[in-house]
C-alpha cells in the first residue's frame, strides 16, 4: 500500500513531526510529566483524538501495523475514521487484531490481551491534568507538579471515603508514575488501571487541544492512588459476557428492550471474538 501523494507521509509536515518527536522523547525521559508541545490544527476536530493522531503520525513508519479502537471496539465510527485517515495519508497496514498491531491508538480502553515489548499504545487524552477538576489554573497545577504537592488529590479522595465509604472515582482514576508524578490515565475505566503497571509496551499520551504529551516507559511502576484501609478496587459489571462467557473482562451494558431487559458484552471486541473462536474450536 502507498500513501496519498497529495500529503506528506502521515499528513504532518516534517518540522511538526520533529517538534512532536522531541516532546515524546522528553516525555519518556520524565515519566508522567506533561510536556507542552505546539499542537497543530488537524483535519479532525479537537476532541476527536487530535493529540493521539499527532503522536501516532509522528511515530508511525511504513512497516508499522496500526490498530485503532474507541471504547474497546475497532468498529466504532471514530475508530473507523481515524484508521481510514492513516491508511490514506500513510498507506500503513491496519489490523483489528491486538496481537498483530505494532501501534495501537486508543480512546478510553486498554486492550484485555497483555501487550508486548514490540508494541506502542497511544492514548487519546481530553484533559491531561489530573488535578484539573480540583484546580483549573494551569499556572498553579504546574507549580504543584514541580513540588510533587498532591495534597489536593488526597483530600478529594479522602472526602469521597468520608461521604460514600469508598473512593467514588470510576474512570480517569489518578495514578502515581514511578512514585513521582501524579498522572491522568485518560478516561479509561479504573478497571484498566492495573494493566498500566509494569506494562512491557511503551505508553504514549497525546492531548491535542490542551497541547500536552506525556508517557509511561515500559516496565514502569504505575500505582492507582489509594489508602491502606481503603485499597484501590477496579469496578466492572458483575456479569459474564453474553457472547464469549468471559467473567474477567470489562463489559458494556446493552439495553435490549424498554422493559429493563439488558445483557452484557465485552467492550474489547477483538478479545471477545478470539475467545468465541476458541470456544467454537473446543466444541
Amino acid at each position: 500500500m502507498t500513501h496519498d501523494p497529495g500529503y506528506n507521509f502521515a499528513y504532518l509536515d516534517e518540522s511538526t513531526k520533529r517538534m512532536i518527536r522531541r516532546a515524546i522523547l522528553k516525555a519518556v525521559a520524565i515519566p508522567g510529566h506533561q510536556v507542552p508541545f505546539g499542537s497543530r490544527e488537524m483535519p479532525l476536530p479537537y476532541g476527536w483524538g487530535t493529540g493521539g493522531i499527532q503522536v501516532t503520525a509522528s511515530v508511525l513508519g511504513p512497516r508499522d501495523v496500526l490498530k485503532v479502537i474507541d471504547q474497546g471496539s475497532d468498529d466504532t465510527t471514530n475508530a473507523v475514521s481515524i484508521r481510514a485517515f492513516f491508511r490514506r495519508t500513510a498507506g500503513v497496514a491496519t489490523t483489528e487484531r491486538t496481537a498483530e498491531a505494532t501501534i495501537i491508538q486508543t480512546r478510553h480502553r486498554i486492550p484485555e490481551r497483555r501487550l508486548t515489548e514490540g508494541q506502542i499504545l497511544v492514548y487519546q487524552v481530553p484533559i491531561p491534568e489530573p488535578l484539573a477538576r480540583l484546580e483549573p489554573r494551569i499556572a498553579e497545577t504546574r507549580r504543584l507538579h514541580a513540588m510533587a504537592d498532591y495534597g489536593l488529590m488526597h483530600v478529594k479522595l479522602y472526602e469521597d471515603i468520608a461521604k460514600h465509604g469508598h473512593i467514588a472515582t470510576s474512570y480517569s482514576y489518578p495514578v502515581m508514575v514511578n512514585e513521582r508524578y501524579l498522572m491522568s490515565p485518560s478516561p479509561i475505566p479504573a478497571f484498566d488501571n492495573p494493566k498500566m503497571h509494569m506494562m512491557p509496551a511503551l505508553q504514549l499520551f497525546g492531548a491535542g487541544r490542551e497541547k500536552r504529551i506525556y508517557a509511561v516507559p515500559p516496565y514502569t511502576a504505575v500505582r492507582s492512588l489509594d489508602f491502606e484501609d481503603h485499597p484501590f478496587r477496579p469496578i466492572r459489571a458483575p456479569h459474564r459476557c453474553e457472547l464469549c462467557g468471559s467473567g474477567d473482562t470489562y463489559l458494556d451494558e446493552v439495553l435490549v428492550d424498554d422493559k429493563g431487559g439488558r445483557i452484557f458484552v465485552c467492550s474489547d471486541t477483538d478479545h471477545c471474538q478470539e475467545r468465541q473462536a476458541m470456544r467454537e474450536a473446543a466444541e
Binding site: F9, K17, L25, V28, A29, V59, L60, G61
Partner: peptide, 19 residues
C-alpha cells in the same frame, strides 16, 4: 530519504530512550 530515514532514526532513539 529524509522523511523515512528521519522516522526510522527517531524510532530507534525512542526505543533506546524507552528501554
Amino acid at each position: 530519504d529524509p522523511v523515512l530515514d528521519s522516522q526510522a532514526a527517531f524510532r530507534a532513539v525512542l526505543e533506546a530512550m524507552s528501554r
